[in-house]
Simulated assay, not measured.
Amino acid sequence: MRFVLLGLFISSLTACTQNPEWTLFYYADEASISTAAKPSEHIAGYYSTSEQCLMKGAGMVKLSDSGVGSFQCGQQCVANDTGSLTCQTFVDSLIF
C-alpha cells in the first residue's frame, strides 16, 4: 500500500513540473522586429503551445496604448554561454 501511495505522490509531482515549450518575445511600440534586437531582453512569457503564445502576443499588441507592437514565439529556447538565446524555430502567426 505504501508503494502505491508513494508512486502516486511522485507522479503528481512530475505532472506539475512540465517545462513550457514556447517563449513569447514582445517588442512594444515597434511595427517590426529589428535584426539588431536581442530576444532575451523581450521575453514576455512562457507557454505550452504555440497557439497560446501567439494569442497572448496578439492580445498584448491589441491592449497596448499605441496599438503598435510586434511579437514572435520561439520553440525550445535555451540560453548559451554568451547570454544570448537560441530557439529551435520561430513563429509569428498561426499556421492552419
Rank of each mutant, 00 (worst) to 15 (best):
M1R: 04
R2P: 04
F3Y: 14
V4K: 12
V4C: 03
L5V: 09
L6Q: 07
G7N: 11
G7E: 01
I10S: 15
I10P: 06
S11H: 07
S11L: 15
S12A: 14
S12W: 05
L13P: 00
A15P: 07
A15Y: 14
C16G: 15
C16E: 09
T17Y: 02
Q18Y: 09
N19K: 15
P20N: 14
P20A: 12
E21T: 12
L24C: 06
L24E: 01
F25N: 02
F25L: 06
Y26P: 05
Y26I: 00
Y26L: 05
Y26R: 02
Y27W: 06
A28V: 05
A28P: 15
D29L: 01
E30P: 02
A31E: 11
A31M: 11
S32Q: 10
I33W: 00
T35C: 01
T35E: 10
T35A: 11
A36N: 08
A36P: 00
A36L: 14
A37E: 09
P39T: 08
S40E: 14
S40C: 07
E41M: 12
E41F: 09
I43G: 09
A44T: 02
A44C: 03
G45P: 02
G45A: 06
Y46P: 00
Y47T: 10
Y47R: 04
S48D: 14
S48K: 07
S48R: 13
T49Q: 08
T49D: 09
T49C: 10
T49R: 04
S50E: 10
S50N: 07
S50F: 05
S50M: 04
E51H: 12
Q52I: 00
Q52S: 07
L54H: 04
L54N: 08
A58N: 11
G59T: 07
G59M: 11
V61E: 02
K62R: 12
K62T: 09
K62E: 13
L63H: 11
L63A: 13
S64F: 09
D65M: 01
D65E: 12
D65W: 00
S66R: 05
S66F: 06
S66Q: 05
V68A: 06
G69P: 03
S70A: 10
S70K: 00
S70D: 04
F71H: 08
Q72F: 00
C73V: 07
G74V: 05
G74K: 01
Q75N: 15
Q75L: 10
Q76A: 13
Q76E: 08
C77F: 05
C77K: 02
V78E: 15
V78W: 14
V78M: 15
A79S: 15
A79G: 12
N80K: 11
D81K: 10
D81P: 03
T82E: 14
T82F: 08
G83E: 10
G83F: 10
T86E: 12
T86V: 14
C87G: 09
C87H: 05
Q88P: 00
Q88K: 15
Q88C: 02
T89P: 00
V91N: 06
D92C: 04
D92I: 01
S93I: 06
S93E: 13
S93W: 06
L94A: 11
I95L: 13
I95W: 07
F96Y: 12
F96R: 14
